[in-house]
Design a binder for these strands. Structure first.
Lengths: 99, 99
DNA sequence: TTAACACATGAAGATATATTCATATGTTTT
DNA sequence: AAAACATATGAATATATCTTCATGTGTTAA
């Protein structure tokens, strides 16, 4: 029975986490990454947005440690690492599909 | 291995769901509702925002069926009903607290 | 029915966010 | 070193979002 309110600081962090998945393009990016690591231009192609837009999104996801980047030559591969984050995201997908 | 991209329509719905929890005030409201149903003015007091702001937030949460409203006299009590939503939200809290 | 209270709602202003464009950085090949 | 390619970044614009203010709606009590 955690009947207590979350303090503003913690609440802001929770909000920040959910905000990471609150954009259609980022959700599509995440959905692709569920299938394994992808580089930026592949993501841009699959999602249908510019390379620049993808890079901007990945910066945010990276800073929140929701993805990790791995450089291989000229390309940068992004992937999901945190199993809790993967679960959280998949639960979101399941919820909207249960209707 | 769902290596496939979410279509834009589904992705927009997932994004919409996460967006519901992407605001500090709404996260605080949700955290309070974890402890049981509360009416609007109590929520406003606890969260520290205006009655109007709470009503606006509750409208969004209501429309997404993340909360249900119950009128009792002059007051309207809101509560969480969907156990999957509760779990999803609690997972978000747990994630930020594991640091 | 009028007053008082609780909540909802529309409009407006302020702030945040996503995308694009131009350009910078980093890497490989010639 | 120069060219070509992949990615990152800053600035600018367009759009979305949150909050407040004023007022509307619904309910109870006088």
């Amino acid at each position: 029975m955690p009947s207590k309110i979350l303090d503003e600081h913690s609440a802001a962090h929770v909000a920040e986490l959910f905000r990471a998945f609150s954009d259609t393009s980022r959700v599509q990016i995440m959905s692709v990454l569920l299938g394994g690591e992808k580089n930026v231009s592949v993501l841009a192609d699959l999602v249908g947005i510019s390379q620049s837009a993808v890079s901007h999104h990945m910066r945010g996801l990276r800073q929140m440690k929701l993805v990790v980047a791995r450089r291989e030559g000229k390309e940068v591969y992004y992937s999901l690492v945190d199993p809790h984050i993967i679960t959280l995201f998949q639960q979101g997908i399941r919820h909207v599909q249960e209707e």
